[in-house]
Computed example of a mutant assay.
Amino acid sequence: MRILIVEDEIGISNFVKQGLEEESFVVDTAEDGNQGLILALSNDYDLLLLDWMLPGLSGIEICRQFRKENSSTPIIFLTAKDTVQETIFGLQSGANDYIKKPFHFEELLERIRVQLRSTPSVPEKLSIGNIVLDVNAHQVYKGDEEIFLTKKEFALLEYLIRNKNKVCRRTRIIESVWDIHFEYNTGVIDVYINALRNKLKLSEAENYIQTVRGIGYIAKEL
């Protein structure tokens, strides 16, 4: 599950981000409304956490503009505003829930879980060649054989298959799978690619994961 936090108070943002990552969520953050809206519209998030008062666009403006493009992704407001009128205004703008600052992380986590449970879960299976990846069950099969992958191996394979027949640059892989948004030694990708190829027992005739020299990798149907 991937969550976007739009919050200009760095202490709160880092606190929530760390807590959610410990619960196995992938978390992106933005410190102003303009950046938050760009991220919200250009990525697939399972839930948005929006501060109300932000530099640039307010949380209300982000919510309204986002709802024009996306009517289903849950939105929770994090804010010090707590009057009945303000709560109603936030909900009418498109938010699903509302939590007042200061808050306990455990309460926020449960509110997030409630929203994600209420989002319909659609069975999703991705495939390339004779390899099938069951996203919901977190299982991978090659033919009738189940292949056991680590979380990062699974996430890497899922990313490559979702972008099947497209060249995946190393920087994009690091950002999407490892959630690292700064210069980083992308050599770690090579280690995981090799592990994937070995676990999937890919023969020369099953070269589904190909290296694009100097750029990255591509998952390709043969």
Rank of each mutant, 00 (worst) to 15 (best):
A155L: 05
E153R: 12
I173E: 06
I174D: 10
F154A: 01
V177P: 05
I161G: 07
R162W: 05
W178V: 04
F154L: 05
E175D: 13
E158I: 00
W178D: 07
C168I: 01
I161Y: 08
E146M: 13
L160C: 03
Y159A: 00
A155D: 14
K164R: 14
Y159S: 00
C168W: 05
D179N: 15
R162V: 05
K164S: 13
W178L: 11
N163A: 11
D179E: 12
V167P: 13
L149I: 00
R169I: 07
R170T: 08
K151E: 11
V167T: 12
S176T: 15
S176N: 15
V167Y: 11
I147W: 02
E158A: 02
V177H: 06
E175P: 09
L149K: 01
L149Q: 02
E146V: 06
F148I: 13
L157N: 04
F148K: 15
T171N: 13
N165S: 14
I161K: 05
W178G: 07
R172N: 12
L160Y: 01
L157G: 02
S176P: 14
N163K: 13
W178C: 07
T171W: 08
I147F: 01
E158K: 02
K152V: 09
V167W: 08
I180D: 03
S176M: 14
N165L: 04
L157Q: 04
I147G: 04
L149M: 03
R169F: 12
K152Q: 13
K164N: 09
F154R: 01
I147M: 09
C168V: 03
L156F: 08
L156E: 05
I174M: 15
L157V: 00
T150E: 06
A155P: 03
E158T: 00
R170F: 04
V177N: 05
N165W: 04
L160M: 02
S176D: 15
V167R: 10
R172A: 08
A155F: 03
S176Y: 08
L160Q: 01
R172H: 11
K152I: 10
N165D: 14
Y159D: 00
